[in-house]
């Protein structure tokens, strides 16, 4: 049962995934969506040459804030887990 479920569910995910990926993987040669607007206005709005950094710290700066909080949380948790616990209680 366990073996069957493992192979069944992984096969389902693999097959549907491959199918979906095949229809997703078109080669786009032009911009569309957010990227064009972002790249065109980077210098004017942020004065940064590196567009990735401009995205990371300006237009998606709130995500980066969350990301650094993730790091902080993970480090605090590691410190809490590896601390010397109470003995014999």
């Amino acid at each position: 049962m366990k073996k069957f479920m493992t192979f069944f569910s992984l096969t389902v995910i693999l097959v549907t995934g491959l199918f979906v990926m095949k229809s997703m993987a078109v080669l786009p040669a032009t911009y569309d969506g957010v990227a064009k607007i972002l790249v065109d206005t980077t210098i004017e709005r942020t004065r940064a040459l590196n567009a990735v950094t401009a995205v990371v710290f300006d237009s998606r700066g709130y995500d980066t804030l969350g990301e650094s909080f993730v790091l902080f949380t993970a480090i605090s948790c590691s410190a809490a887990i590896l601390r010397k616990g109470l003995k014999g209680r």
Binding site: A48, L49, N50, V52, T53, A54, V56, F57
Partner: peptide, 8 residues
């Protein structure tokens, strides 16, 4: 140089 070159 995060805002000028690759990296950050």
């Amino acid at each position: 140089h995060g805002h000028l070159s690759p990296g950050g």
